[in-house]
């Protein structure tokens, strides 16, 4: 592992471990109110400070991160499958199918996707599934375009012609030459989509359209913490804000480094 990967990988590792282990290593009820301990500054007993209902902000932020990462990863995967299938059909079939699918994508892309996401959650009951669906249905377009563009470009490359004259079937060309080229790019697009999806979940929760208010979500917390900012309890929104910024930047940084290594030539140079 390159030393420049260590910091983002460590941040992601720590965040995932904290999310998974928080019920074991810090067994507090995330919804339990302690009115005798409200808006306390960060201390040894409450490392993130407490909010206006006396709940530890860092503890709730970790629960919020669990939800955000879960939504981010699942929504990115759903969007990838959807975008991959639609982009794959457009890129492999080409012609009219491609033209019609691309115009549909252009039409959806012309709409502001946060508004579209709000419309989708507003149609459904507030739940984790509704947020995942809202983020996934508004984020498959870029994957579809990447897959379609890659396939159209690969299809006309002479090495595909060489494979055809060599007797390869369509399925063989797809599995041996097309997918191995497209899959790393799809995986990269998915990874880059995770922080974006997390921000969307946060934005929807911040607007009160995400998870029910009693469940910790980073967006809910930042929204609730706004009130405390005026009373000087800055930690109530800054701590969840820092958690989300740090973790999403770490994922984006690792994905960007991975993108650099996708090109076999760049990889060879890095190995030297």
């Amino acid at each position: 592992m390159d030393k420049r990967d260590v910091t983002p990988a460590a941040v992601i590792g720590l965040a995932v471990a904290a999310c998974l282990l928080v019920p074991v290593i810090w067994p507090l009820d995330q919804s339990a109110v302690a009115l005798d301990n409200i808006s306390q500054a960060p201390s040894l007993t409450d490392p993130g400070g407490t909010d206006d209902l006396g709940r530890d902000v860092l503890h709730r932020s970790l629960y919020g991160l669990r939800v955000s990462l879960l939504v981010g990863v699942v929504a990115a995967l759903v969007a990838t499958v959807l975008g991959g299938l639609i982009g794959g059909v457009a890129g492999l079939l080409g012609g009219w199918t491609d033209r019609i699918l691309m115009r549909v994508i252009d039409t959806i892309a012309a709409l502001p996707h946060l508004l579209l996401g709000i419309f989708i959650v507003a149609m459904l009951r507030p739940s984790l599934g509704a947020v995942v669906l809202s983020v996934a249905l508004t984020h498959w377009l870029s994957t579809a375009r990447i897959v379609r563009g890659e396939l159209l470009s690969l299809r006309t490359r002479p090495f595909i012609d060489a494979a055809i004259t060599g007797g390869a079937s369509r399925a063989r060309i797809l599995t041996r030459h097309l997918l191995p080229h497209v899959l790393p790019k799809i995986a990269l697009a998915t990874t880059l989509m995770v922080p974006h999806a997390v921000w969307h979940e946060t934005a929807l929760s911040f607007l009160g359209l995400g998870l029910p208010p009693h469940l910790a979500s980073l967006g809910n917390m930042i929204n609730d913490g706004q009130r405390s900012l005026l009373t000087g309890a800055w930690w109530a929104s800054i701590v969840p804000g820092l958690v989300i910024v740090t973790v999403t930047l770490a994922i984006a940084a690792l994905a960007a480094r991975w993108r650099d290594r996708l090109d076999p030539r760049v990889r060879a140079e890095l190995e030297l």
């Binding site: 002479p158 004259t165 030459h177």
Partner: peptide, 15 residues
């Protein structure tokens, strides 16, 4: 029918 293309680089799967 075998074909030998002009650019070996374009005619080879880089992977």
């Amino acid at each position: 029918i075998g074909v030998l293309f002009q650019s070996p680089r374009a005619a080879s799967d880089p992977r």
